[in-house]
């Protein structure tokens, strides 16, 4: 198995409203084709972890925090903000809570946007976006504005948008928070299937353990301690069996 993102002995400290929060990650490896579910109660550090993976927060220190680029390993600890922005745009795809679609762009334009920002030629892009949309089951909605779609459809558009530029890592932060449970199952299904098809790693953050156990390959959680403030340590990933139980 190919590890795409590696984190080792990583720590990050945040001060929020006078209290201190520290996230420790002893080791986390995310491989291509894997689905990792990040679960836990509120305030356990799910968001902090995703922000780090999304290259928005920079860890205070780490023995390793790297990503496999096409030309070798990229050390994410000492890159500039501009490089961060580039890597975000090039290697990572995002599925946001309520889609995060641009209201003034059509579905097709929304899907193509990340690739266009990378300067990919638009003729080939259009076909790719259309086939992605068909895969997502929204092939007949291409020229509508997002405001005319249902919540589930919007999330499908968001998934298509996250995959258009062939990222190796897809981050989904509570992708089902705004939809009903039936649609949530559906979206998770589509998300996992399409990410697998693109041979990318998928990280889903969710508070819904049941849902995650039905769809993810691995599950990580946090252990909270109260020392000087809150210290949260990421537990090693646990594989989930086909039946949905932890192995």
């Amino acid at each position: 198995m190919n590890d795409y993102v590696c984190l080792r002995n990583l720590s990050l400290n945040r001060h929020k409203n006078g209290s201190s929060f520290t996230l420790l990650v002893p080791e986390l490896r995310i491989g291509c084709g894997q689905t990792l579910a990040v679960v836990g109660q509120s305030g356990c550090g799910k968001s902090t972890l995703t922000d780090m993976l999304a290259l928005i927060l920079r860890p205070d220190g780490a023995d390793e925090f790297s990503l496999q680029g096409p030309d070798g390993t990229i050390n994410l600890m000492n890159i500039s903000k501009r490089q961060q922005a580039f890597i975000r745009g090039r290697y990572i795809g995002y599925v946001l809570q309520s889609g995060g679609l641009f209201p003034f762009l059509s579905v097709l334009e929304n899907i193509m946007l990340p690739a266009k920002l990378l300067g990919m030629p638009s003729s080939a892009l259009k076909d790719k976006a259309k086939s992605l949309a068909v895969d997502m089951g929204i092939g007949d909605q291409l020229y509508k504005k997002p405001q005319f779609l249902s919540g589930g459809q919007r999330q499908r558009v968001a998934i298509a948008r996250a995959l258009i530029h062939d990222p190796k890592l897809v981050l989904a932060d509570e992708p089902t928070a705004a939809v009903d449970s039936v649609s949530a199952e559906d979206i998770c299904e589509v998300l996992k299937k399409s990410v697998n098809q693109h041979d990318a790693a998928l990280v889903i953050v969710s508070h819904d353990r049941g849902l995650m156990r039905r769809h993810a390959d691995y599950e990580v959680t946090f252990e909270l301690e109260r020392r000087d403030g809150i210290v949260s340590t990421l537990q090693p990933p646990v594989k989930i069996s086909q039946s949905g139980n932890l192995l």
Partner: peptide, 14 residues
């Protein structure tokens, strides 16, 4: 703000 933040996430520098 939200849309602009998404663009930042999609790799557009400030």
């Amino acid at each position: 703000r939200k849309e602009l933040a998404i663009l930042r996430l999609l790799g557009v520098h400030g």
